[in-house]
Design a protein around this nucleic acid. Structure first.
Lengths: 112, 112
DNA sequence: AATATATACATAATATTCTTATGCATAATA
DNA sequence: TATTATGCATAAGAATATTATGTATATATT
């Protein structure tokens, strides 16, 4: 993703969570959804997205289904059963990351 | 850092913020501080830390001062003026990242 | 009619940032 | 005496991104 507003490693979590919510999505749709949800703050680049989708598929976390719409190819991805489990893990990791960062960058209001 | 609980790119922000709070720190001290603040959740590896410190220094964000304590060398780092400005930027970026991630992974409770 | 933009996929070269492994050296502890 | 803690460092490799480029169709603009 560009704008360097993102930390490396977060793209996979974003993909998994969006698929978890939407059921199935194709690549271009993911880039637009992310742009919309973040008010243009985050832009997923294709050079990052497509290799990431291919890798998640190779790992067995995603299934792909090809469709032709308006004479154009779309590759719809959806979570496998394993992908759903992994989504839970990734989201827990993200929460843990955010908690850790809050403890580090703002110890005053993060101590209970 | 290890445990793969961190997203790449966050280490620099952590270093800058800790130096901002502590005034000056040496490398080993940073690793221990992070471990303590996160209850052992995050572990900064030396292979990541020292190159990062050297790079921040090369970029003019840190100044270094060598000291000998108990017959052992310590390299104390502190923020330069530029480093202090950059710290503000990095923290703002981190907040923006967290806000974006919340919008993406949990749109229900992040919409105002 | 020609051109630009949007849609939709993909890969290759390069950069960045990390992990893992290794090395050196002194001090404290078991 | 051997291990752990303290304290620095670098090198090889992995992972993940950016940037640039390529192909192709549909729609909007000039």
């Amino acid at each position: 993703m560009s704008n360097s507003k993102l930390y490396k490693g977060s793209l996979n979590t974003i993909i998994l969570k969006l698929l978890d919510e939407e059921g199935k999505m194709y690549g271009y749709e993911i880039t637009q959804k992310v742009k919309a949800l973040t008010q243009g703050e985050l832009k997923i680049t294709e050079g990052a997205l497509y290799p990431a989708l291919h890798k998640l598929e190779a790992e067995g976390l995603l299934d792909v289904e090809v469709a032709k719409v308006d004479n154009r190819i779309r590759k719809y991805y959806k979570l496998t059963e394993q992908g759903e489990k992994e989504t839970v893990n990734r989201l827990a990791e993200l929460e843990e990351f955010i908690r850790s960062m809050q403890q580090l960058v703002n110890p005053k209001w993060s101590i209970q």
